[in-house]
């Protein structure tokens, strides 16, 4: 059997096992904290986010984590296939992102507050794996002729790429912790969860921008559209930072709009990259070369992933309830 088939089977199998181990997906049901939740939407038994702000935000965080993990899964598969799995460690991100994706998807469908230990563990592993990958890539860049030069940052193992897995893990871990938090005043690491997450996702956006900026600089910004991912996400990051400074309960419509814009950009980026592949010599009919030499199709959605994390943060900030102010969003039945 071709090694690529084996690898795909192993990755898929690992994902499935993770899904099963995380337990059957829970559906809408009474929250343990009792009381403050919206009525079940009777028309739709599935897909509705948990009514508790913590569960809802956690699911959003899992969406973010899913997108990032998916991006890493496809991107690292493509790039490590290009690198011929020269080092056995190059299989790692594929397996890990695959279980991360399974775990995040599982969480995304879980409307319950309360964390899953399994998912939490998997996400933590993803976070750590990304860091190790970063170390590997940094070592790969440095050992090349010319050391830490632009040339090697362009063409050696992409130094920022493994961090996307770390981001997936971080957001995934945050999702589980948020599930455990008090819905009235959710806290993460003893700080207000919304603010922490807003600032964290702002930083993540800037990091992702740096990666895109480096690679688009390598492409000489030959198409003006290549400037969008280095301008829009920093604006989004600024909006998030601003949101973190606002009073709890203030409307965050502008920041949310910015996150949706970044999110859409990530999806549109795939189309732009597909156009980029078509512009390579031989276009799509030369896909075996151009899919790996052209602009990477799976990369842009990592922006969408981080932006969804930002949305979760905004949800937490917006709906963070001080005891003095009644919650407007949930009228009694």
């Amino acid at each position: 059997m071709h090694p690529v088939t084996v690898l795909a089977a192993v990755a898929a199998g690992a994902g499935l096992l993770t899904w099963i181990a995380a337990g059957r997906s829970k559906r809408l049901g009474p929250a343990p904290h009792g009381g403050r939740q919206a009525p079940p939407d009777r028309g739709r038994a599935y897909g509705r986010r948990g009514a508790e702000v913590t569960a809802s935000a956690a699911q959003r965080l899992n969406h973010a984590s899913s997108l990032l993990a998916g991006s890493v899964l496809f991107d690292s598969s493509l790039e490590h296939y290009r690198g011929q799995f020269f080092n056995r460690a190059m299989y790692t991100p594929i397996i890990v992102s695959s279980i991360t994706l399974a775990s995040s998807l599982h969480g995304a469908g879980d409307t319950d507050p309360g964390r899953s230990g399994m998912r939490h563990a998997v996400q933590a592993v993803a976070g750590a794996t990304g860091l190790v990958g970063f170390g590997f890539h940094a070592w790969n860049v440095g050992k090349r002729e010319g050391g830490y030069s632009f040339q090697n940052l362009f063409y050696a193992a992409p130094i920022g790429a493994p961090m996307a897995l770390t981001l997936a893990g971080l957001l995934g871990v945050a999702a589980e912790r948020v599930r455990d938090a008090d819905p009235d005043a959710p806290r993460l690491a003893a700080l207000p969860a919304g603010k922490v997450l807003a600032l964290a996702t702002a930083a993540m956006l800037l990091g992702t921008t740096a990666e895109a900026g480096l690679l688009h600089f390598r492409g000489a910004f030959q198409n003006p559209a290549m400037l969008i991912p280095v301008t829009l996400p920093p604006l989004g990051a600024a909006a998030l930072a601003l949101a973190a400074t606002r009073e709890p309960g203030t409307s965050q419509a502008d920041a949310k709009a910015a996150m949706w814009a970044v999110s859409a950009m990530g999806v549109a980026g795939v189309a732009f990259h597909a156009y980029g592949v078509a512009r390579m010599m031989g276009g799509w009919s030369n896909w075996r070369q151009n899919l790996i030499d052209g602009p990477p199709l799976p990369a842009p959605p990592s922006f969408s992933g981080v932006a969804l994390g930002g949305l979760a943060a905004l949800e937490l900030v917006e709906r963070h309830r001080s005891l003095s102010s009644p919650r407007r969003l949930h009228a009694p039945p």
Partner: peptide, 17 residues
């Protein structure tokens, strides 16, 4: 080698073609 060229150019690297 045209239109398809090569992708893997480093030491001890070969494309599947």
């Amino acid at each position: 080698a045209s239109p398809r060229g090569y992708v893997r150019m480093g030491f001890d690297r070969r494309d599947p073609w």
